[in-house]
Design a protein around this nucleic acid. Structure first.
Length: 494
RNA sequence: GGUCCCGUGGUAGAGUGGCUAUACAGAGCUCUGCAAAAGCUCGUACAUCGGUUCAAAUCCGGUCGGGACCUCCA
């Protein structure tokens, strides 16, 4: 199925035609590892994961997906120094070597990041590469030299800056974001750092070292400029090094359109001489918490840890996000999370019910069984797939999927049809990553509960309703629900 | 100051000129000794004011409200 995506470059939903025969090349801006990621960050990673999965499961493509780890930047340097309040015991003892501290500090948060994305349903095996910025310093320096040779950069005060004015003479700048430079907001700090640049729109490609900071040697134009890379350069260099330019899809949060992506694009065009860095630029909207942007001062700043502490299953969080389109702002509330959780369980129960009818015939990955799915219901699955192909419209796909579930009477299903349905649902789960197709795990019931239940069953057989109800209440008080069947009962945790 | 987005039922969230999702919660019913689970049914929502139109939640304008971005925030 052809996949359509909204492209920030054209402001339109367009069909994706991969540039290469073998695979779709996709690059996603990853985390800056100086803290735990918050749930807003996670939306970006879950979105990009789902896009990647749609390309595979619905588009039928192979995908080479790269997500970078930014392990060098101003905030990291600020926090990763000896004596910093942000330094945690788990990171070990800070040394006098700035680079070593940087490494210990960033590896810690990198590991935490990986744990977090895995728990919200990302599969590390889906990544073609997860490059660390500091491992591509050489490639970045190459690119900076190329840009400088093309007269699109200048050296000032031992740093290197991209010259936007020069670039604009031969290229369009502001393709992803309309910039109104005449009306920069008054009072906002224009110069975010202490480096010298000729124009406020210029940005640093390379920042000269300051005392105590980690640095790399850099020779350019016959000068030695020890320092570190600017923020935007890493994504340009790594997407080029690992995937080759242009790539098919570049993703990130809306806030990255400018300046980060705009500058990335300019660096690629100005340095590598390509017309495009990516065919598609895809940006996810932000997540809000209780109707407000997440911020520490509002006290609505949440990490995955905060949710887990409240007993929330990270997969429920993932699922809750998919109830909204990735380009809409999403209002995260605990109530909607509960709704998503119940909704996810309902489909899980359906899957297990169908599994119990299925003949277990595995036709994994084959769609030849489709005719076995009741035709009236099957159309909903088609619609669900179409919704996913149409700019990854997960809420519409879920609506169709729910309608599908409601349209199937599991009891009337043949074993063969049940298997066919399972195969179809597996394809959707390749996108949603929200369900399991392993058998229901039996839950260990404590012996005392079993004893009470047995006593109750006896009482019930004797039609001693009052005793039976009393025992049920007692079992309920201990956290279990009894469900009576025809000639047996089941216990479930409440 | 500039640029832009949004306001849909109790909640979340689709729809973007007529057919009006979906989920959760809630109500009623069926089933059940009573329950639970499940199934069925239901609510008649589109900020507000005006305009365009045979017809507007959907297009246009005003108002009110919320939000984002404007140099290193996903």
């Amino acid at each position: 199925m052809t996949i359509k995506l909204y492209n920030t470059l054209t402001r339109e939903v367009e069909p994706l035609t991969p540039l290469r025969k073998e695979y779709v090349a996709m690059y996603s801006c990853g985390p800056t590892v100086y803290n735990y990621v918050h749930i807003g960050n996670l939306r970006a990673f879950i979105t990009t994961d789902v896009i990647q999965r749609v390309l595979k499961a619905i588009g039928g493509y192979d995908v080479r997906w790269v997500m970078n780890i930014t392990n060098i930047d101003d905030k990291i340097i600020r926090d990763a120094t000896a004596g910093s309040a942000a330094w945690l015991e788990e990171m070990g003892i800070p040394s006098s070597d700035a680079k070593q501290n940087l490494r210990a500090f960033t590896r810690f948060y990198e590991d935490e990041f990986l744990k977090d994305i895995v728990s919200v349903g990302l599969d590390i095996n889906h990544f073609y590469k997860m490059p660390r910025a500091t491992e591509y310093i050489g490639e970045m320096q190459e690119l900076i030299r190329a840009i400088t040779q093309n007269k699109l950069a200048y050296i000032s005060d031992r740093s290197v800056y991209f010259d936007v004015t020069a670039y604009e003479k031969s290229h369009a700048y502001g393709r992803l974001f309309q910039i109104d430079r005449e009306n920069f907001r008054e009072g906002v700090r224009i110069d975010a750092d202490e480096y010298d640049r000729e124009s406020v729109s210029d940005f640093a490609l390379w920042k000269g070292k300051k005392p105590g900071e980690p640095f790399w040697e850099f020779e350019i134009e016959g000068q030695q400029l020890p320092g570190r890379p600017g923020w935007h350069i890493e994504c340009s260099a790594m997407s080029h090094a690992l995937l080759g330019l242009p790539i098919d899809v570049h993703t990130g949060g809306v806030d990255l359109r400018f300046p980060h992506h705009e500058d990335e694009l300019a660096q690629c065009c100005g340095g590598y001489g390509v017309k495009e860095q990516a065919s598609f630029w895809v940006h996810n909207e932000h997540l809000e918490v209780e109707g407000k942007k997440m911020s520490k001062s509002l006290g609505n700043f949440l990490t995955l840890r905060d949710l887990v502490k409240q007993g929330i299953d990270p997969i429920d969080f993932r699922f809750a996000l998919l109830f909204a389109h990735y380009r809409s702002k999403l209002n995260f509330t605990f109530e909607s999370l509960k709704a998503a959780s119940a909704s996810r369980k309902r489909i899980q129960e359906f899957i297990w019910d169908v599994m119990s009818v299925s003949d277990g015939a595995s036709t994994d990955g084959m769609i030849s069984e489709r005719e076995s799915v009741p035709a009236a219901s099957f159309q909903y699955l088609i619609k669900a797939a179409e919704a996913l192909a149409d700019d990854v419209h997960t809420p519409r796909a879920l609506a169709e999927l729910n309608t599908f579930v409601g349209s199937v009477s599991v009891g009337e299903l043949s074993a063969h049809s049940a298997s066919a349905i399972l195969n179809e649902l597996k394809i959707f789960n390749d996108v949603f990553g929200a369900w399991t197709f392993s058998p229901r795990t039996a839950i260990e019931v404590p012996a005392e509960i079993v004893l009470l239940a047995e006593k109750r069953w006896e009482a019930r057989k004797m039609k001693n309703w009052s005793e039976s109800d009393r025992l049920r209440d007692e079992i309920a008080n201990r956290g279990w629900t009894v469900m009576d069947g025809k000639d047996s009962y089941e216990l479930e945790p409440r």
